[in-house]
């Protein structure tokens, strides 16, 4: 990639982007419940050592998402908002039951294969 010709300069209109952000922003006075957004304390770039290491990278994403999920859960607990799905609540899911069955079979087969090698 070092062969790629580099342009002398790249546009980065920081002030215009900030103005644009303020222009489209949702009203500040809205409660957090409208958006459910969480921002981590430390930049991911600082936490990751080797980007090519799939395992370390996925683990970092997981940790970031888990921290956000816990923060959301704490908020719901504090404001006594029941946001968990009740156990007796059944409704359509993103993946169908047939698909989940295929996933389960795939994993059983994987386990068998590993067991066979061992």
């Amino acid at each position: 990639e070092a062969l790629a010709p580099r342009k002398p300069s790249y546009t980065n209109e920081e002030e215009v982007m900030e103005d644009k952000r303020k222009e489209i922003m949702l009203p500040k006075e809205w409660p957090w419940i409208e958006t459910l957004d969480v921002t981590s304390a430390v930049a991911a770039e600082e936490l990751i050592g080797d980007v090519e290491n799939d395992f370390a990278r996925e683990q970092m994403f997981y940790n970031q998402a888990l921290a956000a999920a816990l923060q959301a859960r704490n908020y719901f607990a504090e404001h006594s908002i029941p946001a968990n799905r009740p156990h007796d609540y059944f409704a359509e899911t993103i993946k169908t039951d047939a698909h989940m069955e295929r996933v389960r079979k795939h994993h059983v087969q994987q386990d068998l294969r590993i067991a066979a090698v061992e």
């Binding site: 459910l36 957004d37 304390a41 430390v42 991911a44 999920a69 409704a91 359509e92 993103i94």
Partner: peptide, 16 residues
């Protein structure tokens, strides 16, 4: 798996 239409928590890292 998740419910269809349930709401997500949006998680951003500090760079955002």
């Amino acid at each position: 798996n998740a419910l269809r239409g349930s709401r997500p928590v949006l998680s951003f890292d500090a760079a955002f």
